[in-house]
Every structure is written in structure tokens, then in C-alpha cells.
Simulated scan of single mutants.
Amino acid sequence: MRSGKLNPARGPGLAARWGRLREDFIRWVTRRHHADGRRARVSRDRVYILPTRQGYMLLLILLVMLLGSINYSNNMAFLLTFLIVGIGHNAMWYTHRNLLGLKATVLPVKPVFAGTAPVLSLRLEETDGRPREALQLAAGAKAGPPAYVEAQASAEIAIVLEPRPRGSYRLPRQRLSTRYPLGLLEAWTWLTLDSEVLVYPVPIPAASAPAAAAAGDGEAATVPDATDAIPDEIRDYRPGDAPNRIAWKAVARSGRLFVRDSSAGEAAPTWLDWDAIQGSDPEYRLSVLCHWVLEAHASGQPFGLRLPGQRLGPDTGPAHLGHCLRALALFGRPGSRPA
């Protein structure tokens, strides 16, 4: 005898199949659209419009009103029915025009650490001389709040994406929609604005690491600490110097910014080495190296990074920090994957 219980796997399986069918249908509909790159303009052939749930309900009511008007030959009922139809038709024109001609530009997505949700921001520009209201941006399963763009102006609209593991991703397809002015119809357009979403490893504190990094040719070294730097002279502050090296007593006496110039620059730079970390889990090693890189950058001392098959020479500054974190994010994952 068959059991009356439902298979719990049927629900998610059906939802997954429906999601795949929906994506295939969207790709078929938008196959004639070219890739947008970092900037796009909403033209007539990219705007789609359909009634909302309230719109379909109004259509049903109008159908009943029309049948009643025909049955009773009531001129006032005919007048009211066609008056509402005219209002709905005018609302369709306004809804379609609210998207037409908008220019959208994707802003750079700030890199995040694994487990943190990245933020997608678009700049919407209005050049036709009329305000745009009730604009909503969606990407994947995430949707943002309604936005407003003034005439001959621009506005930024942001949406929080889903957290991702370590790696590099492309932006998911974006959907810009509006239900202005009555909410009876929804007009939308599909955008494929492109920007990289870079996700760094989660930094693990160095205290949890069983071993420190190794220095240059067989010379042992520990993770750099800003308190170990011994100043031997004072020089003028330069942009990029670590704040913890500012000589505050000299600043108080002269009113100018001075920093302590350490003699560590003459010594061998610190190397953060993959092989200096015990453990077989690559993600654990990358997380420890990520923490070491952040500490080394905060100390202001030159440091280098050694990974299997890759070596980043010793340097300082935000650019070197970005290169090291990017190498950790992309290690073992060449190329980009769709988000």
C-alpha cells in the first residue's frame, strides 16, 4: 500500500526545475540584446510590460462591467466602463515611459571577505527632462528599495547581494522595474552590466596559527608587529605612512607631521610563506595568510607573499595590499564564475 506522505525532495526539485525553465526563458527573450558592459541605455526594444495582480483583477472587473452594460443596455455603465479602460490605457503609457531613456552605469563593487554580502550600486541618469519615480532594482533573488531620479539629474541605487565564498564572480543579471503610477502594470528591463565581485578569504587571527611565516633565504621571521620597529630618525610625513609611526611629540613641538623612520627597511623584508603554515586545508592556510597580510600592511613594513607557483615581491602601500589579497582570493580558482 502506498504511503500518503509527500516526498520532501519533490518541493525543492520542482522549484529548481522551475528556476531553470525561467532562466532559459529569460535567456531566450533577451538573446537579441547585446552585452552592456559597464553602461547601458534603456531603449524601446528592451522594455517589457505586463499587468500586475491588481491589473488582472481590474481587467476581470471591467469584463463583468462590460457584460452587464451589454445585457442591460445601460449607457451610463458603458460610459463608466470605457472611462476606466481609458485611464488604464493612459497608465500603461506612463508606466512604459517611466523606464524609457534611462541610462544605467554600474559602479565598482568593493571587495569583501568571505561570508560578507557585497553591495551592487548603479548610477541612474535622466536626460529627457522628466522625473522618474518608483524605480526598483533586483539582482538574482535580492531586490532593493524604490528609488527616485529627478529630471536632468542622476541618483544611485544600491542592492545587497548574497554572500559568496572566496573567489572572483561576475554580477548576476539585473532587473530594473517600475509600477508607476497606479500599480496596475509593471514595466521592466533586463540589464547585463558587468563588474567583478572579488571575495577575499576570511582572515584568521595569527594566534590560531601554529607557525609564523618564513623570511628570505632560510632566515626565520615572524609576522610583523608595529611595536617591534625601533626608530632611528625622524622624517617628514609622506602619504601612505602608517599612522602608528607618527612622532606625536615632534608634532606637538613643531606643529608639523613627522614619522619615525625605522632601520627595518635596511634589513631583509618579511616574507609571508605558504609553507610556514602547518595543516593540509588550503582554505585555512589562505585565511591565516590573509590575516598576516593585513597585519603586515598595518605595520607599514615591507613584506612579500609566497604561494605555490606564485611570488609577490616585498613592497608596501595599498596597491601591494590589493595585489596580495587578490592573489589569495584567486588562488586555485583561475578565471571568473557567474554569481
Rank of each mutant, 00 (worst) to 15 (best):
M1L: 12
S3L: 10
S3Y: 06
L6N: 08
N7D: 12
N7I: 06
G19E: 15
E23Y: 14
R27T: 14
R27Y: 13
W28V: 08
H34P: 14
R39T: 09
R41M: 10
R44E: 13
V47F: 07
T52N: 06
Q54S: 11
I70M: 11
N71P: 04
Y72M: 09
L80V: 14
L83T: 14
I84F: 11
V85H: 06
I87D: 01
A91V: 07
W93E: 12
H96T: 08
H96M: 05
G101F: 04
L102S: 03
P108Y: 07
P108A: 05
V109T: 11
V112R: 15
F113A: 15
G115P: 02
G115Q: 06
R123D: 13
R123C: 10
L124D: 04
E126F: 06
D128G: 15
R130W: 15
R130Q: 15
E133A: 13
A134L: 14
L135A: 10
A141D: 13
A143M: 14
G144Y: 11
P145D: 15
V149W: 06
Q152K: 12
A153I: 08
A153V: 06
I159F: 03
V160A: 12
P163L: 00
P163M: 00
G167Y: 02
Y169W: 10
P172F: 04
P172W: 02
L176H: 01
R179F: 01
Y180M: 03
P181I: 00
L182E: 01
L184C: 03
L185F: 13
A187E: 03
W188P: 01
W188R: 01
W190E: 09
W190P: 02
L191C: 01
E196V: 14
V197T: 08
L198E: 03
L198H: 02
V202M: 11
P203V: 06
I204T: 12
A206G: 12
A206M: 15
A207D: 10
A207P: 01
A209P: 00
A212R: 14
G218Y: 01
A221I: 05
V223E: 08
T227R: 13
P231W: 07
I234S: 14
I234Y: 11
R235N: 00
R235K: 08
P239E: 14
P239R: 06
D241E: 07
A242Y: 05
A242H: 04
R245T: 10
W248G: 06
K249D: 12
L257R: 10
V259R: 03
D261Y: 09
A264L: 10
G265K: 08
E266Y: 11
P269Q: 05
D273N: 07
D275M: 01
P282L: 00
Y284C: 04
L286S: 04
W292G: 04
V293D: 09
E295L: 13
S299L: 03
P302T: 03
G304Y: 02
G304N: 07
R311H: 14
R311Y: 13
L312S: 05
P314H: 03
H320Q: 07
L321W: 01
G322I: 03
A327S: 09
A329L: 07
L330T: 15
L330C: 11
F331D: 06
P334D: 00
S336C: 11
R337Q: 13
A339T: 02
